[in-house]
């Protein structure tokens, strides 16, 4: 049973289906909320925390991507506090890896770069951690550059949920976390990888890219995602 609820987002009256997320309702009404881990068509994990919003009467911030709308909810998506938190979170990401946009294959097609721009980040107050990370170029068609990975796990989810290969996973903990293929083999040696390139298409940064491209040449195609998910739904999955 689905019904329609009315709520307020940033003072604007909005009608939405009751199984919709706050994020979806906002987007449908032209209200942008920054996201990173979320990608329509994949399961939602509420991990990046960029989409946190304020709800009147709730002292906790909630992730808009996985919180369903409710009747009479009063949502704020763009307070000064939220914007400050988002800037810090994006800064944390830049400081965590080695994100050198100027020499990145994804320069100009990167969601991290876009986030910095839209949030008005013009420098990093936090010191870079400069971890020594590897580049895995063992696959014949693609490259995984751990220096640029933001651990959004989109690749893990698309591979598991859409392609069904479950090649990718996350190993270790905390700041040491890392994407691995199979049981930590070089990607080129992975027996489960079908070479479908879906992970490369969903990666938000320059971490997963086509081989042979130069700086700023990477472009992503993600049209397949909603279709595939829709088809799987219709097939009763």
């Amino acid at each position: 049973m689905s019904g329609v609820v009315t709520l307020k987002i940033n003072g604007q009256d909005i009608g939405a289906h009751d199984e919709e997320s706050i994020l979806q309702a906002a987007l449908d009404n032209g209200i942008e909320i920054p996201t990173l881990c979320d990608l329509p068509g994949l399961s939602r994990i509420g991990a990046c925390r960029l989409c946190l919003v304020e709800i009147a009467g709730n002292s906790n911030l909630v992730p808009a991507c996985i919180t369903p709308v409710q009747e009479d909810m009063v949502v704020t998506t763009d307070s000064e506090r939220l914007q400050a938190y988002r800037r810090t979170i994006v800064e944390l990401l830049f400081a965590e890896g080695n994100h050198v946009c100027s020499v990145c294959v994804s320069n100009g097609a990167c969601e991290l770069q876009d986030l910095a721009e839209t949030l008005g980040i013009d420098h990093l107050r936090l010191p870079g951690l400069h971890p020594a990370r590897e580049v895995d170029a063992s696959h014949e068609r693609f490259i995984l550059d751990h220096n640029r990975c933001v651990l959004c796990t989109r690749c893990v989810r698309v591979c598991d949920e859409v392609e069904g290969a479950h090649t990718w996973d996350v190993t270790a903990r905390g700041i040491e976390s890392q994407i691995i293929a199979d049981l930590n083999v070089a990607w080129g040696d992975s027996e489960s990888c079908t070479g479908c390139n879906k992970c490369v298409q969903v990666c938000p940064t320059g971490a997963l890219v086509d081989k042979g491209r130069s700086v700023g040449e990477m472009r992503r195609r993600r049209e397949f995602l909603p279709y595939l998910t829709m088809m799987r739904k219709e097939n009763g999955k």
Partner: peptide
């Protein structure tokens, strides 16, 4: 970017 965030010269920090 070099002045702002280290950029290419800072690649050696790793």
């Amino acid at each position: 970017d070099c002045a702002v965030m280290g950029n290419v010269p800072a690649l050696r920090n790793t």
